[in-house]
Structures are given as C-alpha cells and as structure tokens.
Simulated scan of single mutants.
Amino acid sequence: MDREENMYRIKGRAAVSNDAGRFERHAREAVDDGWQRDDDLPVLRTQTRIETPRSFITYNRSPDLPFDRSINPYRGCEHGCVYCFARPSHAYLGLSPGLDFETQLIARPDAPTVLQRELAAKRYKVAPIAIGTNTDPYQPIEKQHGIMRDCLKVLSDAAHPVAIVTKGSLIERDIDILAPMAQRGLVRVGISVTSLDAKLSRLMEPRAPAPVRRLVMIRRLAEAGIPVRIMASPMIPALTDPELEAILAAGKDAGARTASWIMLRLPQEVSPLVQEWLALHYPDRAARIMSRLREMHGGKEYDATWHRRMRGEGPYADMVAQRFALAIKRLGLKSNAPPMRCDLFRAPVLPGAQLSLL
C-alpha cells in the first residue's frame, strides 16, 4: 500500500504519512480502493485554530541547554521540516506528528497579554527568554496573526533579553524593534541553514525560505547591528554534513559573528518520518545515514541522554566536532556570544495597576 495519504495531494509537504500520535487509542491508515484519483485530489491546505493560553513562559532544567525558559507563539510549523525534533509535541494535542504538524496549526493571539502579566509578577526573576526553540515564530502564519511582533513589543518595553532562532524571512519586518534592542544588548538571533543546496532544502524544508534567502536575512540583520549566529543544524551524516565548512563560510561572509552545529536528532515519531522521507528521496544512502546515526547513539536511533543527545558520541561525531572547531577558528567565528544584559529589565505596569511613587 502507498504510504502517502490518498485523500489529498501533498506536494509542498515534507512528511510522507500522517500516522496517529503515540497517545491515540486508534490508528488510521489510508487504503487503496483501486480507483485512480490523482487528477482530482484536493490540495492539503493549512488550517489554523486559536488557543488561549493560561500561561505562556515554559521553564526547563535541561543542563545542556543555554536557556531555562522559552515561549512559543504557535504550535505546529508550516515550514514542515521533516527532521524537526518538535514534531512529537503535536501528539499531546491529539494530532499526528506527521502531516498534521505542518498543516494543523495553533495560534495563540492572547500570548502577548499573558506574557506581559507573567513578566509583571513579583516573583518573576529576569533571564534571557528563548523563542523558536520548538516551532518557528516567523513561520508563514505570523504574517496574518502578528503574535511574535506583539511579543517583541512587550519584551522591548520591559528591556527583557531575548534569543531568537528562525528560518523565516519575516524577521526582517521586525528590524525596527530588534535593532534598538540590540543596541541595548538585549537580543541575538540564530539563523538555521541546513544545506546550501536549494533542491535538497526544498525537499527537507518545503515551506521555509531557500538557503540563499536565509543568507540575505543574516546580512540584513547584521547590517542593522543585530548579532547573528549561523546555525549549521541539523547535520545529517552522508547527506548534509559534507557542507559544514561551506555553510559556516557563507554565514561568515553574510555577517554572522558566532556559529553552532547540532547533529540530526530522531526522538519519538521523528525517526519513522525521516526514514520514510529518506526511502522516498534518497534510497541509495538511507541505510548509510541510519547506520551512522545508530553508531553515534550506542546502536539506537536516538539517545536522549543529556550532553549526548545534541551531537552523539564516537569517532564520527568527534570528527564533525573537530571539523567545526577548525572551521570557525579559520573563519574567525566564535562559538559563544557575549551575555545579554539583564540589569535593564523593568517589570511591565499592567493596565489598572497602581503606579509606584518612587
């Protein structure tokens, strides 16, 4: 049986299937009834629902992450990157980490108001907030909803430090907010470039800007005085990792100041989705790629152990790490950015609150 959903045409999507999430009691499976419907299948279009969050800032205690809190204006991501480690989070919503993740999206328009309330709480202690660590805040629906921009206004007004990760060119719209924040040491941006090959990128990240467009983003942000990191992530063995040095060099030429890399991660439902994608688009090297990944994770497709999950272990992982270290040294890139300022923070004053007499 064909693994693709036979109810829709899925051109422009990365996931090959839409299997039920791991918490669902029942699975669904497309069945070929013998009728050829390729010519009249409707396009699988993006649908967006609204969610009103009771809280917005998410805290973590992961020792291998450089932040302890994050916010996400959206659930799901229309960029549709097949390798996205956030796909399993859609299972908590009763949706598939497959096609649902990139087509059944959730927007949170009240999030800026909730964020303002949480920053104003007396118990709140300032530290950099990360945005884009789960789903991209500058995915296409941000143009319609503007939630990320409103969140930035709240953070800027409070002089709160923020670290943003994105592939979305819509970030250029917000340079008018980001540039003044950068002048105060309150912002840095990471731009993820997985491959410089436009064809490969389109297959992996069907609705994200092309690689050359992301380099333009880096240049425009850098020209505005905003510190930018080139993120060569994720590196996929035998597919994108040969491009590591070229990606770093292109980022440097565009104006990036710092750099980082992460090896491909395959948690939960991501592993079968990536393997389906490899079988469809790169059957000649699928076995080699999976063999390398298992080699780096003790024979498993993924090891979630802290300090190992991001890069793996063993000779191959060590070789990529050494290549990265040599490349950034040669290019003059740094792996760590200067700390952002937390001393400028001023808690927001909520509507109706009594103002201080001091």
Rank of each mutant, 00 (worst) to 15 (best):
L280K: 15
L178V: 03
A337E: 13
H145F: 15
R108Q: 11
Q104N: 05
L244Q: 14
P339V: 10
A353S: 12
R87H: 04
A159L: 07
L280Q: 15
H297C: 04
A30P: 15
C84Y: 05
V320P: 03
S89H: 07
Y302P: 06
D64V: 09
W277P: 08
P73E: 09
I71M: 09
E51M: 01
M231A: 12
M310S: 04
S201I: 04
A304S: 09
D33F: 00
D64K: 08
G76H: 07
A250I: 12
D32C: 08
P161G: 09
A238M: 04
G21Y: 12
P128K: 03
N60W: 07
E24F: 07
I177D: 08
H145P: 00
H297P: 01
S335Q: 14
Q47R: 14
K167T: 07
G76E: 13
T240V: 06
L41W: 03
N134K: 07
R341T: 12
R219W: 05
G312P: 02
V31F: 03
R25H: 02
M319K: 15
L95P: 01
A254M: 10
A250M: 10
G299A: 11
L65P: 01
C342N: 09
P206W: 05
F85S: 04
Y59D: 02
V165T: 12
R87Y: 05
A208Q: 09
N60L: 12
R213M: 00
Q36V: 11
I236G: 03
R87V: 11
P283K: 07
I175M: 01
R188P: 00
S335D: 14
N18I: 07
F67R: 06
T166F: 13
R9I: 10
R123E: 11
A120Y: 14
W261D: 03
L221E: 08
I131G: 08
Q275Y: 00
R308E: 08
R346D: 01
P348A: 13
G98W: 09
D150R: 15
V31S: 01
F85Y: 15
S70P: 06
D2L: 04
T135N: 10
R37I: 02
T194D: 02
A127E: 09
S195Q: 11
P137A: 06
I171F: 06
R13F: 00
R45M: 15
D174C: 05
I191L: 11
R288C: 04
V228R: 11
A259F: 05
